[in-house]
Amino acid sequence: MTTLPTRSGLAELSAQGRLGLAWHALPWVLAFVVFYMAEGYLSLWTNALIMILLTLSLDLALGYAGIVTLGQAAFFGFGAYAAGLFAIHVHNDPLIGLVTATALSGLFGFVTGILILHTQGVTLLMLTLAVAGLLAEWANRAYEITGGDDGLQGVRMGPVLGLFRFDLYGKTAYLYSLAVLFVWFVVVWRIIVSPFGRSLDGIRQNPARMRAIGTPVWWRLVAIYTISAAMAGTAGALSAQTTRFVGLTTLSVLVSGTALVMLMLGGTRRIYGAFLGATVYVIVQDYAAKVNPFYWMFFIGALLMATVLFLEGGLMDLGATVRKYWRRAPVKKP
């Protein structure tokens, strides 16, 4: 990562060139094309939207602020269980549940952030893992509350805004997730282009210097960690509400790992990297499992190796990488 030229995503966001805003409309237009084209596949695409949101939250913490974390699953699962339990015990309105789960995940991120963000590097990585591990173990032991390995059964969701019922075909779930993703996308965009976002860039590159020029480094990190946690919590809550189920796997390290893989696949610090990485991953996984239900993991592994070996900056750098090899090729010839 460090060998790459630093990119903040600003270049893309402020692109007012030939195509300008058209580029930014593209993902959302595609999202609507998918809605009308992909009948029967909408639950898969809803899953992709949720993973995009989770990956984007990881990009904020890991990509922009440089917080090395493998604990994103803690917030994803926390949000999922919060939304599920809220629907069962308090109220089944999706929006109220979503906002509550988001706020609670943010609070959880804030508290754990205060506890662990004074560390760096491998120590921090271990601590984020520990937080996720503790939470997963608690959920496993608290059989009466969470259902343990059986998962949280019996989540019944009311209609969105009192109007749109969650249907078997997943149309409501898809549009609902898309709307939520868009709101968070705007928030992320505002953060990245704000002075606060620029200071995170600085903190990632040189915390000592940022401290020297008077930036409250620790508080900035806690703030972005909290936002990232809230966002991951939203993703978890969406997953709970759209599948009407929460399992222990939402808290597993595998979720954190998958989000990280998606981010690396798409490209860090490129606001659309999360979109590209998560989408490609979900499609490849689905396709591979369909082609061969017995050895499908192999394809995922091969894709990852290929990306890591040949595309340092992820799929977002595909164009640039190809151009680089293109230019280099004639030079190599004697």
């Binding site: 639950s43 898969l44 899953n47 059986d150 998962g151 078997l168 997943g170 997953s239 599948t243 189920f245 929460v246 399992g247 796997t249 939402t250």
Partner: peptide, 10 residues
């Protein structure tokens, strides 16, 4: 993995 099973059933 109950959530996976549910997704597969759909």
């Amino acid at each position: 993995v109950p959530d996976k099973a549910r997704q597969l059933a759909e």
